[in-house]
């Protein structure tokens, strides 16, 4: 009997090795291990044997059954793996057939430049102040030590609006009114930068816009010196442009600062590029804002945001910044 079963097991092993689908496997499973299989029938006959024989035969039967079960498991694993492989092959995709269904928009180049500047200044301990774009003569000029007769007024090329008395309300010609509004409303120490749109009567061309963006810094604290001004500008320039870029200050004139300076940054070829204006806040400006110039001192600086964007990306026409052509916007 055992010999016959050995033959059956060998037979099963051979047929299981060749099975090609799970249905056939189930049939073979029933044939070799089912109720009517030779193995099951043989097990039922064990009861008629002598105890010693029965024990030996039982052991042999179990061993044969184990082998067939292992063969079936192996066949099932093989078939499952084949089926998965076939399914995966059928799922093959060309991933370059993309249709850009999720679109991301772009932040405007000016916003990106402004955010970057803000982040550098925030890292240096500044907060961001903002103010209105339509201003009164007090904030745009008078509080900034530019009286009505002052020749500097003409140099601002101011755009006025039809509100109040003539030339009393205007589109701010610089971000400096935010200095005044901040000093009027905040007790020193003050460490702010004020980014925002400013206006001049410039006809739009490749290098000019009548509305453009500037950023202005103001520090008011005890014991602030012109050395601090030069050092702060230097630190900002190193953080924003990189450590190799040098700065220099040249004497200049603004009614709202004294001493006043232009500040330049070095180009790779060693020449200098004028970036903006700066200076120690004029005592009259502090007084106009109710701050005692014998206690507090400070500095201010300012420069163009759009110009930095134009320089960084080498735009050949600044009007791109206001055309809102998506073919431009999406480049950044």
């Amino acid at each position: 009997m055992i010999e016959e079963l050995e033959q059956t097991a060998a037979d099963a092993s051979a047929r299981l090795a060749e099975v090609t689908d799970l249905d056939s496997l189930a049939t073979l499973d029933a044939e070799f291990l089912g109720k009517k299989s030779a193995l099951t029938l043989a097990k039922k006959q064990l009861g008629g044997l002598e105890p010693d024989d029965r024990k030996a035969a039982g052991k042999a039967l179990n061993e044969i059954r184990g082998r067939i079960e292992a063969d079936i498991a192996e066949a099932r694993q093989r078939l499952t793996a084949d089926a998965r492989a076939e399914q995966l092959e059928a799922e093959r995709l060309d991933l370059t057939e993309k249709r850009d269904e999720i679109k991301r928009g772009s932040l405007h180049l000016v916003t990106q430049s402004r955010d970057r500047l803000e982040d550098v200044f925030v890292g240096m301990g500044f907060t961001i102040a903002e103010g209105p774009e339509v201003e009164s003569a007090w904030y745009n000029f008078e509080a900034l030590n530019i009286p009505e007769w002052h020749p500097a007024r003409g140099s601002f090329d101011t755009i006025f609006v039809n509100l109040g008395e003539p030339e009393q309300v205007m589109l701010r010609s610089h971000t400096s009114p935010v200095q005044i509004r901040t000093m009027e409303n905040t007790e020193p120490p003050i460490y702010i930068v004020a980014p925002g749109r400013t206006f001049r009567t410039d006809t739009a061309d490749a290098t000019h816009l009548p509305a453009f963006n500037q950023i202005e810094g103001l520090v008011i604290d005890k014991g602030i010196t012109m050395g601090d001004l030069a050092g702060t500008i230097d630190e900002f320039v190193r953080k924003f442009f990189g450590g190799e870029v040098k700065t220099r200050l040249r004497p200049s004139y603004f009614p709202f600062t004294e001493p006043s300076a232009e500040f330049d940054i070095s180009r790779p070829d060693g020449s200098w590029l004028e970036l903006g204006g700066c200076g120690m806040v004029h005592p009259n400006v502090l007084r106009n804002c109710g701050i005692d110039p014998d206690v507090w001192q400070g500095f201010a600086f300012g420069f163009g945001i759009d110009r930095l964007a134009v320089m960084r990306y080498q735009l050949d026409d600044i009007r791109e910044l206001v055309n809102n052509d998506v073919r431009f916007l999406r480049q950044f």
Partner: peptide, 18 residues
């Protein structure tokens, strides 16, 4: 101006966005 020694303010203001 170039001879003025460069320093940074000693204040301890904390920067940030509102």
């Amino acid at each position: 101006y170039a001879n003025i020694v460069r320093t940074v303010p000693k204040g301890e203001a904390a920067g940030g966005l509102t």
